[in-house]
């Protein structure tokens, strides 16, 4: 069953067409990586999937429930607030720049939404948050504030914060692009460990080796369209000229 379906998505910014008729479906448990040059629309696609941006045209469906659909004139119409709120619970997003709440400790960052949005029991949330921190290797940072953390630690907290709400699908928008290679490694390690949990993930990344290893499916985007998609083997050994020229820039480093 498809967890996420995006059909014929179009999006422009000031007459600049960023997404040109993109369709993407993700099954439950699947790990999908989206690669491609900067400006190809990868992040915009994630922002449309998470409803941070409104699509100009196209359908957005989570678990058979329509968040947006095309009217006769081909313009996207979104569902009512209540429906969107319900749908929104299905997914989480990890940002490139973490966007932790600076005035809250690490533990508060993780616990605040489960407590005040989901209105769950405090002890249970605390226990779960500590488990998540342990998983992220950050138990000793529970009381620290974001300004005291390295970029890698911040991103791991952000991942824990997203996981604390138990989303069915987790989107990553270039989660390591703001990090140096060493810190990148620790974050990728954590994301890999999530793969074992059977969480559905869609990852926009420039880490080719990582994308190849972790993904069930790789999507190569350029200039607002999906140029190619398939298993990592298929895409990384593609004979498509556009794909080859992009991957060629990474040499054999993956």
């Amino acid at each position: 069953m498809y967890l996420l379906e995006m059909n014929h998505v179009r999006k422009s910014f000031n007459s600049q067409e960023v997404l040109k008729d993109i369709s993407l479906s993700v099954k439950e448990g699947e790990i999908v990586s989206i690669i491609g040059p900067s400006g190809s629309g990868k992040s915009t696609l994630l922002r449309c999937a998470t409803m941070l941006e409104q699509m100009d045209g196209g359908e957005l469906i989570y678990l058979k429930e329509k968040a947006a659909w095309n009217e006769a004139d081909g313009v996207s119409t979104y569902a009512d607030k209540e429906t969107l709120k319900k749908i929104q619970k299905h997914y989480g997003l990890v940002f490139q720049n973490f966007h932790l709440f600076p005035h809250m400790s690490v533990l508060q960052n993780i616990m605040d939404a489960p407590l005040h949005v989901q209105k769950r029991n405090k002890e249970e949330v605390h226990e779960e948050a500590m488990k998540l921190l342990k998983k992220m290797g950050l138990e000793d940072k529970a009381k620290a504030y974001p300004c005291q953390l390295s970029g890698g630690q911040s991103q791991r907290v952000a991942i824990a914060r997203a996981l604390a709400l138990n989303p069915k699908i987790l989107f990553f928008d270039e989660p390591t692009s703001a990090l140096d290679p060493e810190l990148t490694g620790e974050v990728l390690k954590v994301i890999r460990s999530l793969a074992d949990l059977q969480i559905t993930m869609v990852i926009v990344t420039h880490e080719m080796a990582f994308a190849r290893d972790i993904s069930d499916r790789v999507i190569f985007m350029a200039d607002g369209i999906i140029v190619e998609e398939g298993t990592p083997e298929e895409v990384f050994s593609s004979s498509n000229v556009r794909t080859q020229s992009f991957l060629g820039r990474y040499g054999d480093n993956f």
């Binding site: 966007h99 709440f101 605040d112 949005v117 914060r161």
Partner: peptide
């Protein structure tokens, strides 16, 4: 306030008023 704080709040399911009271206003005061 950076847009990222609003976007993160939205993704975590905070309502508009919760976002203001819990996330934005404490930082604004400072």
């Amino acid at each position: 306030m950076p847009a990222g704080q609003y976007e993160a709040s939205r993704l975590l399911g905070y309502s508009k008023s919760q976002t203001f009271v819990r996330i934005v206003f404490p930082q604004v005061i400072k």
